[in-house]
């Protein structure tokens, strides 16, 4: 005789698929908890040991660097002479590269503020909670929005001669077009991979790509007067 249960107990910890869980308890049964068991270890000593080990390895690497390479120290500060080129620390060179093209209020105030604000709102940007691929739903409308945004951005960058930022944007845009024309059933693995990516992923990847390219250009390819140089011809 089969059990005439009118409910099914399920375990589901996927908050993307079921952000809210409802429990039904019928009259003849009591609430049943199926523990979501996952193997755990004690923080002390397992985690602390690994943390200490990781920091020790880091310390060894950094001490080695400190012994091998000297920190730069130039002549004493001289307000009557600007070194050429005057470069910021490497992690600000992406920003300095942008400063070369745009007025300070855009590159120095607007862009950083927008970056910080978008970083802060990322986790609250819940429109796509399922993290479904960008072009899998509402494909037509989203493609239209994408084309308008991408072409607008590219025209803007080219109009200001910011080819350094336009090239990575173009590559990301091409990858997005590939994603739009593939589906999770596509033959090639990379097409399948791209098609599943949500919008936040695309924005962040674009940001990462621009950050790397702009920083690398500012660090290695800019010489006196912020003109192009090749790093091996210094």
């Amino acid at each position: 005789m089969s059990d005439p249960k009118d409910f099914v107990a399920g375990v589901d910890s996927d908050q993307r698929r079921s952000p809210q869980r409802v429990v039904f308890v019928t009259r003849r049964t009591s609430a049943q908890v199926k523990a979501n068991y996952e193997e755990q270890v004690q923080t002390y000593p397992e985690v602390l040991f690994r943390v200490v080990l990781a920091i020790e390895i880091l310390a060894i690497v950094l001490v080695g660097m400190a012994l091998l390479f000297n920190a730069p120290l130039e002549g004493i500060a001289d307000p009557t002479h600007t070194p050429n080129p005057a470069k910021a620390p490497w992690y600000f060179l992406g920003l300095q590269e942008l400063l070369h093209y745009f007025p300070p209020v855009v590159a120095g105030v607007l862009v950083p503020t927008m970056l910080i604000v978008s970083l802060v709102i990322i986790p609250y940007f819940n429109i796509n909670i399922e993290a479904a691929g960008l072009f899998l739903h509402h494909r037509r409308r989203r493609l239209q929005i994408f084309y308008v945004t991408a072409i607008g951005l590219l025209v803007f960058l080219v109009a200001f001669h910011v080819y350094v930022a336009a090239v990575p944007s173009l590559i990301v845009a091409i990858a997005m077009i590939v994603a739009a024309n593939s589906s999770p059933q596509s033959k090639s693995a990379s097409c399948r991979y791209l098609s599943k990516k949500p919008m936040a992923w695309w924005v962040m990847t674009w940001f990462l790509f621009e950050l790397i390219v702009l920083t690398a250009v500012g660090t290695f390819f800019r010489g006196p007067g912020w003109s192009w140089v090749l790093p091996w011809r210094s």
């Binding site: 002549g75 070194p83 005057a86 470069k87």
Partner: peptide
């Protein structure tokens, strides 16, 4: 307080 510092 070197040149690098001052101008950056």
């Amino acid at each position: 307080w070197d040149q690098l510092a001052y101008w950056a």
